[in-house]
Design a protein around this nucleic acid. Structure first.
Lengths: 155, 155
DNA sequence: TGACAATAGTCGTTATAACGAGTATCTTTA
DNA sequence: TAAAGATACTCGTTATAACGACTATTGTCA
């Protein structure tokens, strides 16, 4: 029995190797995500919120449009609106309407938001290295290449 | 710039190769998941519901405990309870208390549930082959091995 | 310019994910 | 056998994901 089949207690073999890979990717993403959840928990941030804060930090003083955030995260605008709502309520993000195009809302990370991210930089980096570091440079590179290839037929 | 960095419009290089792989896995799982969502949409099933139905089909006449379902899917019991509620309301699952141990609730897939799964077997199988088939036997095998290795340090 | 489309964001809804509290039913043990 | 603990599930809550409807603003073009 394959390692994955054993892990999910599936005695029946997979219908195809493709299906095994598919389930394997889902499972791996889920399991690795837990580690990040653990790291974020003390800061009361979800993974989505953390990702948005990092995007806002990258955008700097200029801030960024709501729609651009959702574009980078591949999520709906509507979800980003509400995610930003919560970050704004916690004082980690500020928002204001663009003067030139009043449809646009510009979001910026606040000093308080930057502070949290700075506190997270090391633990996050270390945590990820702790769970994936054992693969080593070569296998990480192989895995990256295969994953990019794996979704080449989708997006 | 790497393919992933380009995809998420991240000009800043990744802090580490581990981090790139981590984000890459999350992204790939998400993108591949969309395909399955599309296949399930006409049947008004979520991926979680589909997975549970397949587990119930695998369990056969004997049915299966709620806690065993959550064990296989690695989710909380509480979430499975509510997921089963909805499947039961739609007539795809039946539930009854175990006579011997009245704490236990046994769930079984109904004929109607089996019917839906049968209608889905081909499209699901074909859909996954369509998005991952281009990798070929060898790369699929490599990817499987690397993914199992990738989460070896976590669970 | 005035109708119409496109863009940017908000709000509503259902189902999940993750956390935790609570209830009923066995099991163990003093 | 009564009390304590373990087990199996249910219910409550907040934040997401995915869908869609809606408002406000800007752009296009006949």
């Amino acid at each position: 029995m394959s390692a994955l089949a054993d892990e999910i207690k599936q005695s029946k073999p997979f219908a195809s190797k493709e299906e095994e890979v598919f389930l394997n990717i889902q499972r791996t993403a889920e399991v690795l995500g837990w580690t990040m959840n653990e790291i974020l928990k003390p800061f009361e941030l979800t993974r989505g919120q953390y990702n948005v804060l990092r995007i806002l930090r990258g955008a700097g003083e200029d801030g960024i449009k709501c729609s651009e955030v959702s574009e980078r995260l591949i999520t709906k605008d509507s979800d980003i609106t509400r995610l930003l709502d919560r970050l704004e309520n916690r004082g980690l993000v500020s928002r204001e309407r663009d003067e030139k195009d009043r449809r646009i809302v510009i979001s910026r990370i606040t000093d308080q938001g930057l502070e949290i991210l700075e506190q997270l930089d090391e633990p996050a980096s270390q945590g990820i290295k702790r769970i994936l570091g054992h693969l080593g440079e070569d296998l990480l590179e192989q895995l990256n290449a295969l994953l990019v290839l794996a979704r080449a037929n989708v997006k």
